[in-house]
């Protein structure tokens, strides 16, 4: 487009300069492999024909598609690199999260274990206290029962002693005597036996 504006003088200058290396051909007069200007002109014309035809109908679409393909490949590579970078960042993020989660889990586990230990100790302590209380109460009940039993035994024994005394003495004892004998027997039993 811009070359159209170039004055023809300069185009002629350009062509003249271009023909500089063709100078040997201008003076060539044939020979085994030298040729002459005819072959040179033919070569240029055929080349220009090829350039015009192939340039218009072969190279232009191919170069266009090649360029598009290259851009597409470059874009795909860029996308892949970007995605790779994103993946790496995401992986890093998830790894951090995972590390944090693992730390939290470890902390929770430690705390749980600690709480469980405390709870276990409390339960054990409570159970132990309860058992102790139960044992103490049972012991008291047993003592009470034993005392009651002993008391009954002493009383019965004293009664028996009084009756035996009556039998031995062959007389009726007054109530006062009976009470005195029973009382004395009880005191004597208590002195000799376990406390009722």
């Amino acid at each position: 487009m811009l070359l159209r504006h170039m004055p023809s003088t300069f185009l002629r200058c350009a062509v003249a300069t271009a023909l500089l290396p063709v100078a040997p051909a201008l003076g060539a007069e044939g020979g085994p492999n030298v040729g002459d200007i005819g072959q040179a002109v033919a070569a240029i014309l055929i080349f220009l024909l090829l350039l015009a035809v192939l340039g218009r109908w072969a190279w232009k679409p191919i170069v266009h598609q090649l360029h598009s393909r290259e851009e597409s490949i470059a874009r795909a590579i860029n996308d892949a690199q970007r995605r790779d970078q994103e993946s790496q960042e995401l992986l890093k993020l998830y790894r951090n999260r995972l590390d944090r989660a693992e730390a939290e889990v470890a902390e929770i586990l430690a705390s749980g274990r600690k709480e469980a230990a405390v709870a276990r100790d409390q339960i054990l302590q409570a159970a132990s206290d309860e058992a102790r209380k139960s044992a103490s109460a049972a012991r008291q009940e047993i003592d009470q029962a034993r005392r009651d039993a002993l008391r009954d035994l002493y009383e019965t024994t004293a009664e028996l002693a009084a009756e035996m005394a009556e039998t031995v003495l062959r007389r009726n004892l007054s109530d006062d005597d009976r009470r005195r004998i029973v009382g004395e027997s009880l005191q004597e039993l208590r002195k000799r036996g376990p406390e009722a």
Binding site: L3, A14, V15, T17, A18, L19, L20, P21, V22, A23, P24, A25, A28, N33, V34, G35, D36, I37, Q39, A40, V41, A42, A43, I44, F47
Partner: peptide, 21 residues
């Protein structure tokens, strides 16, 4: 054709023409 000197000269001339233009 490329074993003919003037043809090679013409091809080189095309290169020079392209450089100059």
């Amino acid at each position: 054709p490329t074993a003919i000197l003037t043809v090679c000269a013409a091809l080189a001339g095309v290169t020079l023409l392209a450089i100059v233009a």
